[in-house]
């Protein structure tokens, strides 16, 4: 008996009803019950221990599924910087950037000045699969380099696979400052 167990090991090999190692039938039955209980206890504890350790790990890993979406107004320049009718790239810091985000901390949008005080901001991302669309000044079109999506200057689909117009960000003018309301990467 290496482990101080008080059970007759031989009875493990003998079924109920066999006397085996001189153990009586009833005693063997008791032993089987005890073993069943012990294995159930062990399996339950294994499950419990895995859950205790696993739940926080899963929670940490899955947090981006449920975390809050921070959204902010970001200044992108002065009104006078953008001639009426122009479409230009503006850069702003993404509101959820991390201290080590560095060169990926910023995100961009296409800002189009429609009139004296009216602006439209388009997400860079093609609504097909998210590649960055380019503004082609002379052709007056947004074009995607990946799968050939084309949009008119108002963001409507002009050709190719995109299923929806370019996503718009809310824009406002406060005093002389143009501000864009950051919203998450648009997922089609």
């Amino acid at each position: 008996m290496c482990c101080g167990s008080d059970e007759p090991i031989a009875s493990a090999a003998s079924g109920p009803g066999e006397t085996g190692d001189g153990v009586s039938t009833s005693a063997a039955g008791e032993t089987m019950d005890r073993r069943r209980w012990m294995s159930r206890l062990s399996l339950t504890l294994c499950g419990l221990a895995a859950a205790v350790a696993g739940v926080p790990i899963l929670g940490f890993f899955l947090a981006p599924f449920v975390s809050a979406h921070p959204e902010r107004w970001r200044g992108v320049g002065r009104v006078s910087q953008f001639p009426v009718g122009s479409t230009t790239t503006v850069r702003f810091e993404d509101p959820s950037s991390l201290p080590w985000s560095g060169q990926v901390a910023k995100t961009a949008a296409w800002l189009r000045r429609e009139g004296e005080a009216s602006f439209i901001a388009f997400s860079l991302d093609c609504t097909h699969l998210g590649c960055p669309v380019r503004w082609e000044e002379q052709a007056n079109l947004f074009m995607c380099p990946c799968h050939g999506g084309v949009y008119y200057s108002n963001g409507e689909v002009a050709g190719g696979p995109p299923p929806r117009p370019l996503t718009r960000y809310p824009v406002r003018v406060r005093g002389d400052a143009v501000e864009i309301h950051t919203t998450p990467l648009p997922i089609t």
Binding site: S96, V104, A105, L185
Partner: peptide, 10 residues
Amino acid sequence: FIIGGDFLGG
């Protein structure tokens, strides 16, 4: 979940 949040980032 893939991009780890709202924007591609840190």
